[in-house]
């Protein structure tokens, strides 16, 4: 079993090195002539105004937060799904209860208006 993960570890190294090599090769064959205008950041063709920061929009954070809660929920449910064969019917109902509680949470968020973008 651990040889499988050894393969994964080696593949991570390969997957990082191979594209890195592919990006480094153009350094030898592509031109490299930076001038002040070319390296300026793009802002619809005009000079940049102010630093690169974004107005705080809480909606981004809210979506990441809701994603986190549902992610943890699915992580709890995966062992339950894998052990399905060995579970009696009431154990299945316990899992269903788990899902139903989180469905209720989603409905709460929906009614509270948290899931709107604007």
């Amino acid at each position: 079993m651990l040889t499988n993960w050894l393969y994964v570890g080696l593949f991570i190294i390969v997957a990082l090195v191979l594209p890195a090599v592919t990006i480094i090769v153009p350094r030898f064959i592509a031109p490299k002539k930076p001038n002040r205008i070319k390296v300026d950041v793009y802002e619809c063709g005009i000079e940049t105004v102010g630093e690169a920061w974004v107005q705080f929009k809480v909606q981004y954070y809210i979506f990441a937060l809701v994603f986190l809660v549902f992610d943890i929920e699915t992580v709890f449910l995966y062992p339950w799904a894998v052990a399905f064969d060995k579970l009696p019917l009431f154990a299945v109902m316990e899992g269903v209860l788990f899902i139903a509680l989180l469905l209720a949470g989603l409905v709460y968020l929906w009614r509270k208006g948290v899931l709107e973008w604007a």
Binding site: I23, P26, I29, K32, V39
Partner: peptide
């Protein structure tokens, strides 16, 4: 694509900039 210049924007965080596509 191999022969196009790789332009690094001014004051970009160079390490992270080049690491992201990899």
């Amino acid at each position: 694509i191999f022969t196009k210049e790789i332009v690094t924007p001014a004051q970009a965080d160079k390490t992270i900039f080049h690491l992201a596509p990899v």
